[in-house]
Design a protein around this nucleic acid. Sequence first.
DNA 1: CTGTTAGCGCGTTCAT
DNA 2: ATGAACGCGCTAACAG
Lengths: 331, 331
Amino acid sequence: MKRANIQDVAKLAGVSPSTVSRALNSFPGISERTRQKVIEAAKKLNYKPNYRGQILTTRSTKNIGLLITDITNPFFPELVRGAEETASESSYTILLGNTSESVEKETNYLDFFSRGPVDGVIISASRIPNEHIINLAEEGLPIVVINRILEHPKISYISTDMEKGGYLATKHLIELGHIRIAFINGPSHSEAAKRRFLGYKKALTEAKIEYDPDLASFNIPVAESGYREAIKLLNTKNPPTSIFTYNDLMAFGVMKAVKDLGLKIPDDLSIVGFDDIFFSSFTDPPLTTIRQLKEELGKKAVELLLELMKGEKRGILLEPELIIRNTTSRR
Amino acid sequence: MKRANIQDVAKLAGVSPSTVSRALNSFPGISERTRQKVIEAAKKLNYKPNYRGQILTTRSTKNIGLLITDITNPFFPELVRGAEETASESSYTILLGNTSESVEKETNYLDFFSRGPVDGVIISASRIPNEHIINLAEEGLPIVVINRILEHPKISYISTDMEKGGYLATKHLIELGHIRIAFINGPSHSEAAKRRFLGYKKALTEAKIEYDPDLASFNIPVAESGYREAIKLLNTKNPPTSIFTYNDLMAFGVMKAVKDLGLKIPDDLSIVGFDDIFFSSFTDPPLTTIRQLKEELGKKAVELLLELMKGEKRGILLEPELIIRNTTSRR
DNA sequence: CTGTTAGCGCGTTCAT
DNA sequence: ATGAACGCGCTAACAG
C-alpha cells in the first residue's frame, strides 16, 4: 500500500494542494465546509504529511541534537529524560549522539548536526574545544552547552556551579577533621573537572592545608579509574584518610577497592562522590555526595535552546547541594 | 556567514552543480583534474551538503528511530549504547524516543517516525499492540522489535528467551529448598512479563508446587513497585520465603523493604532479579539475577534493521544466564 | 476564500 | 567527461 501525498488528498477532496495544507494546519481564512471535506479525504487516505518535504519548506525539523559522553553513566539518562520531556512538550524529538569519550565521534556528530537534521544542538560533552562550538554557532546553528561556561552572544549555557561543588565536598571532609584529602578527578581537558579542582583547592587553602599534588589525579570518569586510583593511594606510605571523586561512578570504584583491601567505610576511609545518581542511596553504605539537578539541567537546556532559536541568549548557574549519607565520618 | 550550497561551489570551481555532486561523492567517469578543482573549491567555502536537500533526493535519512520505555532504567542505556555503536559504524544516527511507559507517547513517536525522519525503527517498548506495528510495517517502514516475538514477513525481532529466564530463576530458588516463591511481575500487557510468568509456572509445575495467585502480581517496572509489593507480601500471615522480580530495579525496591522491616537478606528472604544491570553487583548484598545481553540486544537489533532494509527478515532468540550472587540462600 | 506558481537543495536522469 | 533540466513533497507568496 503506497503512501498518499498531498496531491492525492487534493484530488480526492476536489481542491488544490495548498488548500489541503491550509486545512490540515488549521490556518485561518478557509471555509469550515472545505476544511471538513479535506480532513475527511485525508483520513480516508490515511494521509500524513511527508516529513522530508515538510522540513524543506518550513525550514524546521522539529529535532534537537543532544550530545552526551556516556549514556551508561546514570547521570546522563536523567539529564536526557529531562530534555526529552521538555522537548516533547513542544513537539520536538531528541536526536541522540553518544560519544563514548571520543573526540572523533563528537566532531562527527557535530558536523552531521550542522548539516541540517536538527534545529539546534545541546552539548553535554567535554572534549570539543570552545572554538569549534563557536564556529558552528556563528554559522547560524543554535547551541546550548551544559556544564561549561561559554560566554558568547550566540550561545546559551547552563551549568552546575562546579567550583562550589568541589568546595562543598572538600569543606565537609575538612570539618570532619580530615587533612589528607585526595581528589580523584575527571578528564584534565574537562572544564567541569578544572572548576571542581578550583573549589577543592580553595577549601584547602581556607583551612590552611597545604595542597599535595600526590593526592590529585586526572582520569577517565568511570568506575575502574576510581578503583585503580584508590588502590594506588591506599598503598602509599602516607595514605589519605578521605577521597573525593569526580563522580559517583568513580566513588563506587573506590568503595570496591576499600572493601577488597579489607578496610571499612567510613571508619578507615571517608568518601564523597559527585552527581548523586539514583544508585548512590542504594550502595553499602549509602554514598555521601554532591547533588546536581540532572533533570533540571536537561529541561532547562531545552528551554534555553527554544529561546535561543528566537534570538534570546542566556546563561544559568545551578546550585549544587551536599547530600550527607554514610560514607563520611569524623576523623 | 551564510552556508555555501552546491551552486556556490559549482560557480567557484567553474563547473555545473551536477559535476560537484559527482566529484564529492566519488563517482567514476570524472577527470581527476576536475575532481581536485571541485574538492578545493568545496574546502575553501567550507561546503557541506545540505542534509534536508540530500535526504529528499537520496531517499535515505541515515537515521534510525529507537523507541524505549524508560531511559532511567539502566537496562536501556546499555541497549542504547550497543545500538548506537553499531549504527554509527554504518554512519547511522539514533533518533531516541523515550516513552515513559505512556501509550500516547509511544503512538506519537511511531507516527512521527513513519512520516519520514528515519529509515527504519527499532521498538523496545511494550505497550504498542502488534497490529499497530504490523500496519506500519506493511506501509513500508522497516521495523525490528526487541524482546517481543512477532512473526511477520516484514518485521525482524530479537529477544532474550524470557520463558527460559523465568524458569531459571524459579528453578534456582526451588533447588535451594524454597516453596513459597513470590513473583513480582512487570506490566500485564507486556509480552516479556507474560513469558517470564510462563517460565515461573513451568518450574513450579515441574517441582509439583501448586501455583498460588496471591504470590503473583503485575506492576509498573520501577523500584517503588518492588518496595510496595514486598511490604504487602511480607506482612501477610503466610509470607513467601523468596521473591523473584521482573527486573533488577524492582529487586532493589524489595531489598529496601526487607531492610526497612528489619529482616536479613538472604537469611529471611531470598531474592532473584532480572536483567543484571551494572549496579546489581554493587548492592548490599550483591544481587542474584538473570542476565540479559543488553548491548548485544541493541547491537543485533541494528544489524537486523540494516538487513531488513535490504529485504532480509530474521528472528533471533538470545539465551539468558543465571548469575548467582548473595541474595539467595538455602531455605 | 481558494487556486496557481515558485522554490527549498540536492541527486539523477538525459543529452551533448 | 560534463551540463541542463527535472523532480522529490511540501508550504509561502501572489493572484484572483
